[in-house]
Simulated assay, not measured.
Amino acid sequence: MGVLWNLLSLPLAPVRGTVWVAEQVLEEAEREYYDAGNIRRQLEAVEEAREYGEIDDAEAEAMEEALVARLIEANRRSRQGDAR
C-alpha cells in the first residue's frame, strides 16, 4: 500500500514542498521578529532618533510601546520554549 500511495500522491509533492518552504520562511521571520537583541537595537535606534530630533516624543513613545510589547512576547515565547 505504501508504494501505491506514494505513486498516487506524487502529483501533490510540489504543493507539499511549497507548503514546507512557506512554513520555514514563516518560522525564520518570527524568529527574527521576536529576537530580543533585534528589539533592543530597535529601541536604541528610536531613542537615538528622538535625541537627534528625527521623530517627536509622541512617535517615539508609540514605537517604544510596540517594541516593548514585542519584547514581552519574545520573553514569553522564550520561556515556553524552555519548558518544552
Rank of each mutant, 00 (worst) to 15 (best):
Q24I: 08
V46N: 04
P14E: 06
D56K: 01
P11G: 05
S78G: 09
V15M: 09
L67Q: 02
R31S: 10
A49E: 12
S9T: 15
L7H: 06
E27D: 13
L12S: 10
Q80H: 09
G2L: 11
V25P: 00
Y33V: 09
V21H: 09
I72G: 00
A58N: 10
A58Q: 13
R31D: 10
L12W: 14
N6I: 05
R70E: 11
A22R: 11
E61M: 08
V46H: 02
A45T: 10
D56W: 06
E48A: 10
E48P: 00
R84I: 09
A58H: 08
Q24N: 14
L10M: 13
R31L: 12
E27N: 08
E28L: 15
G53R: 00
Y34T: 03
D57K: 09
E51L: 07
M1W: 05
S9L: 14
L8I: 09
Q42G: 00
V19H: 04
L71G: 00
W5F: 12
L4N: 08
I39R: 04
R79S: 04
Y52L: 15
D56V: 04
N75W: 05
E23N: 13
E32N: 08
D56G: 10
A83L: 12
R16M: 04
A69P: 00
I72L: 09
R79Q: 14
L67R: 02
A36K: 13
R77L: 08
E48Y: 05
L4A: 12
R79G: 02
A62G: 02
R16V: 07
R40E: 15
M63V: 09
M1A: 15
L43I: 15
E54V: 01
G17F: 04
R50Y: 10
M1Y: 06
E73S: 07
R16I: 05
I55L: 06
A62C: 02
A49P: 00
R79W: 07
A60M: 04
W5K: 13
W5G: 00
G17K: 12
R31T: 15
W5H: 07
I72K: 11
L4T: 12
V15I: 15
R77M: 08
E51K: 11
R84Q: 09
R77N: 09
E44D: 15
A69K: 06
R76F: 03
R84C: 02
I55M: 03
V25Y: 03
L67D: 03
E44Y: 05
D56F: 03
A22P: 01
A22L: 15
A29R: 07
L7I: 13
N75P: 00
A45L: 12
Y34N: 04
W20R: 14
Y52G: 02
N38G: 06
Y52H: 08
W5M: 14
R77D: 02
A69S: 06
E51D: 14
S78L: 14
A66N: 11
S78F: 13
G2Y: 06
